[in-house]
């Protein structure tokens, strides 16, 4: 049994194979792998008695259920209006410089993926971003430097 098969089986055993649990199972894979590859999708389909198209159809609808390969840390910078007004562009430029990637790309060491996202619900404390599930608010370029340095340092 491959690692992916093992992981999917564990998740389906934990949540149950009814379709109402599909989101939780897809999110479970994202929590561990940061993205859903073809093997994970076909394996989920098999375990849940769905077609791969049904599973892929659901997964591809949701921004956070990435079907493209992603880094260990997925950074999503809020691009919606108030964060945009409060200096999102500088934050994004700083991240592009620090990570040496453009928005939408993953660093060669597969550590970071830099993305933009829609309103994160921190409009009163913009600019804001998520790194995986964690929210960072009232960002400044200095703060961003510290955050990235700390992650690099700790891993």
């Amino acid at each position: 049994m491959s690692n992916t098969q093992q992981m999917v089986k564990e998740l389906v055993d934990k949540h149950g194979n009814d379709r109402t649990n599909l989101m939780a199972i897809l999110q479970g894979v994202i929590d561990r792998e940061r993205s859903l590859n073809d093997e994970a999708i076909t394996e989920i389909a098999r375990e849940m008695d769905l077609s791969a198209a049904q599973v892929y159809g659901t997964a591809s609808f949701y921004t956070f259920l990435d079907t493209q390969p992603r880094g260990e840390y997925v950074i999503r910078v809020c691009r919606t209006i108030t964060c945009d007004m409060k200096g999102k562009r500088e934050i994004l430029h700083m991240l592009e410089n620090l990570l040496k990637v453009n928005v939408g790309e993953t660093t060669p060491d597969k550590k970071f993926t830099l993305l933009e996202t829609n309103c994160l619900g921190w409009c009163h404390k913009g600019p804001a971003m998520l790194i995986n599930d964690k929210a960072y608010t009232e960002l400044t370029v200095e703060k961003v430097k510290d955050i990235i340095t700390e992650i690099k340092h700790n891993s």
Binding site: R19, T20, L22, M23, A24, T58, Y62, T63, L65, N118
Partner: peptide, 26 residues
């Protein structure tokens, strides 16, 4: 508690049900 996955439209109630049923949030 169930969690969404970054789709604004799922705040629309019927899309939210679809999402909870494991489908596209349409």
């Amino acid at each position: 508690i169930v969690t969404g996955a970054g789709a604004y439209i799922c705040g629309e109630e019927s899309a939210l049900f679809e999402s909870m049923e494991g489908k596209r949030g349409e």
